[in-house]
Amino acid sequence: MLRMILALALMTSLAACSTRLNPFNWFGNDREERVRVSETVTENPRDRRFLVSEVVAFAIDPTAQGVILRAIGRPQTQGHWEADLVEVAREDGALVYEFRVFPPPSPAPAGTPQSREVITGLELSNFALRGIRTITVVGAENRRTISRR
């Protein structure tokens, strides 16, 4: 009984501490950097989506098999659709995604900032994360980065 209590106490202290052994602490909070990004050509020339104007939020949620990346972007107007995080670079422990969306088929009003928000996400396995220290999501006016602790 004493061993079970000690094991339980050790597990809860590990979950509560901020060590690198705790998988929930592998990635920290995001930080924003304001930049002006020129449009880049994606690997697929038929992909005619544009960079979202601003990446509002970026979060990483751990799962048993890896992580889920969630990003919220804000285009200039309402009606943008089919949002995706498109991988553009994977080198030196850094993974970079562009937040791309299709523009509305016809001119649309600007509306409120919240009404323009577009949400997208993707899942990365632990195998795909091997060696990755930072993940960045790029928009036209800013980029958000989350680093491994």
Rank of each mutant, 00 (worst) to 15 (best):
I60R: 00
P62F: 06
P62R: 14
P62H: 12
P62A: 12
T63G: 00
T63M: 02
T63P: 04
A64K: 01
Q65T: 08
G66Y: 03
G66T: 00
G66H: 01
L69Q: 01
L69Y: 00
R70C: 01
R70S: 09
A71D: 09
A71F: 03
A71R: 00
I72C: 04
I72T: 09
G73F: 04
G73H: 03
G73K: 07
G73L: 02
R74P: 01
R74H: 02
R74I: 00
R74D: 03
P75W: 02
P75G: 07
P75I: 02
Q76P: 00
Q76L: 08
T77P: 04
T77R: 05
Q78I: 05
Q78C: 03
Q78D: 00
G79I: 04
H80W: 13
H80P: 06
H80V: 00
W81E: 03
W81G: 00
A83Q: 05
A83H: 04
A83C: 03
D84C: 01
D84K: 10
L85Q: 10
L85R: 06
V86C: 01
E87W: 00
E87R: 10
E87Q: 15
E87V: 05
V88E: 13
V88S: 07
V88L: 08
A89L: 10
A89P: 03
R90A: 14
R90M: 06
R90V: 04
E91L: 02
E91F: 05
E91A: 14
D92I: 00
G93V: 03
G93W: 05
G93R: 04
A94P: 02
A94N: 14
V96L: 09
V96M: 02
Y97A: 01
E98K: 01
E98H: 03
E98R: 10
E98W: 00
F99W: 01
F99Y: 07
R100M: 09
R100T: 09
R100E: 05
V101F: 05
V101D: 07
V101I: 12
F102Y: 15
F102L: 12
P103T: 05
P103C: 08
P103V: 06
P103F: 07
P104K: 10
P104Y: 10
P104V: 11
P105C: 03
S106I: 09
P107N: 11
P107K: 10
P107H: 07
P107D: 12
A108V: 09
A108D: 15
A108E: 15
P109M: 11
A110P: 06
A110S: 14
A110V: 15
G111H: 13
T112P: 11
T112R: 05
T112I: 08
P113R: 12
Q114C: 00
Q114M: 09
Q114Y: 08
Q114K: 13
E117N: 15
E117I: 09
E117C: 12
E117K: 13
E117T: 13
V118N: 11
V118F: 13
I119S: 14
I119R: 15
T120L: 05
T120R: 09
G121Y: 05
G121H: 06
L122V: 08
E123G: 06
E123T: 14
S125G: 15
S125Y: 11
N126Q: 15
N126C: 07
